[in-house]
């Protein structure tokens, strides 16, 4: 699986948001997007599955332009998971996961036994057994994100696009979500996610992409941020990236 973005530009009405974006995500990669509010992270993530049409540039999935892939087929290749949303009608966890199979059903078809059996596999894969019988409004934010990840896997999507999956979550839930996604990436899935927490990006990604003023100012492995002032420039304050005694990277604002 390879996602290639070349020369991508996008503007809302007259206001340019992204310009000249080049980015790729390959199989087994976990790419984190960093940037201030308004840097264009969500816009970029919404452009990938074709929710927005770029002004210029191309987005291809395994060589095929994403815009040329039919909506139903696209669902089987990539899944977009928005920030935590609260539904007016909280469905059960099982029903929420089951929704992921919808692209394979005809217009008036409902899921059957085979799809329901697959839901149980997804529940097992993400260790959601304890919450499987509950409704979405009675589980924690982190668990809700994992249910949405399970729904994405139900789609058979290989690329997970997560828009700020850790916002509104407590620290343990932030780690839980990214660790689970990390496990999936090690199994061959790919992921691109945005975050406002550079510490999480350092520890839970194979590549960090920093965005500012509608462009990409850094696209490299997290290790190479040590001694680099890109985050200081990004957040307009001095930030040191250090390697701790146990070899992990950490972010220290000064």
């Amino acid at each position: 699986m390879t996602l290639e973005i070349r020369g991508l530009s996008f503007s809302y009405k007259e206001k340019p948001v992204l310009s000249g974006i080049d980015l790729s995500v390959r199989e087994g990669e976990m790419v984190s997007l960093l940037g201030k509010n308004g840097a264009g992270k969500t816009t970029l993530l919404r452009l990938i599955p074709g929710f927005l049409k770029p002004d210029e540039g191309t987005i291809t999935f395994d060589g095929t332009p994403v815009g040329a892939i039919k909506l139903r087929q696209r669902a089987g290749l990539m899944a977009y998971i928005p920030q935590i949303t609260r539904s007016a009608f909280p469905y059960s966890v099982r029903t929420s996961i089951l929704m992921g199979c919808s692209s394979r059903l005809s217009l008036m078809q409902s899921p059957g036994k085979r799809e329901e059996a697959k839901v149980e596999q997804m529940i097992e894969l993400l260790n959601l057994q304890e919450i499987a019988g509950r409704t979405m409004d009675t589980i924690s934010g982190g668990e809700r994100q994992l249910v949405l990840v399970a729904r994405a896997l139900m789609q058979d999507a290989r690329l997970l696009i997560l828009d700020e999956p850790t916002s509104f979550l407590d620290y343990s839930n932030q780690l839980l979500v990214l660790e689970k996604v990390g496990e999936l990436v090690r199994k061959g899935y790919s992921c691109i996610y945005s975050t406002h927490n550079p510490d999480l990006a350092l520890t839970h990604s194979s590549r960090v992409v920093a965005m500012a003023d509608g462009g990409i100012v850094y696209d490299d492995r997290p290790e190479n941020l040590v001694g680099n002032d890109v985050l200081s420039r990004l957040y307009s304050r001095h930030i040191s990236i250090v390697r701790t005694e146990n070899g992990r990277l950490a972010c220290i604002p000064e």
Binding site: I81, A88, G100
Partner: peptide, 15 residues
């Protein structure tokens, strides 16, 4: 059921 999700979610699911 899927229409009651957000527009982005429903489209991501392929609806």
């Amino acid at each position: 059921n899927l229409l009651s999700l957000s527009e982005d979610e429903a489209r991501s699911i392929g609806v």
